[in-house]
Amino acid sequence: MSSNAIEMNFADWFELTNLYADYARAVDSGDWDLWPEFFTEDCLYRLVPRENHERGFPLATLSFDSKGMLKDRVYGIRETLFHDPYYQRHVTGAPVVRKVEAVAGNVRWHCEANYAVFRTKLSEVSTVFNVGRYLDVVERTPAGLKFAERICVYDSEMIPNSIIYPI
């Protein structure tokens, strides 16, 4: 490990990795109401093509900057967006913690993790759907660890038709 490695105790590390595993479980469960609860009220959630991210273009495929917007997305998924039903399966790598800071007494971890999402449509084989990395800011709140930011920067050059469910 490099000399400026982040020091973390085991309990924090356990809690953090548990958050990542739990997020993957939640967004693959089909119970979309679970998803916004992983975020703070004034969170930032973005799904961004790597091209835009690296070239400094501000456009995202989805860009939500409040928990309310995430709830609106859940409503859209469930009630208004017509789409082929599918299962999705997230495989998330172990997070690497880049920076630790304390904001108003709360600890914030800046983390990064690779992810791959597989899609399985009914009567079809499973395919690679979206791959990239999460750029996260995780905050300790009275309700436990929450994402203050989750920016999904995806390598996938082409979205296979559409993305409906949360990455």
């Binding site: 799904l47 501000p58 456009l59 995202a60 495929t61 989805l62 860009s63 939500f64 917007m69 859209g76 208004t80 967006l81 017509f82 789409h83 082929d84 979205i159 038709n161 559409s162 993305i163 409906i164």
Partner: peptide, 28 residues
């Protein structure tokens, strides 16, 4: 106005609230 255009972009594109389903019906 720039932020407004970016925020309204959530309605459009491959995951947009009103455009994702256009791609779906074309496929079917």
């Amino acid at each position: 106005m720039l932020q407004r255009r970016l925020r309204q972009a959530n309605l459009f594109g491959p995951a947009g609230f009103v455009s994702a389903d256009d791609g779906e019906v074309i496929e079917f």
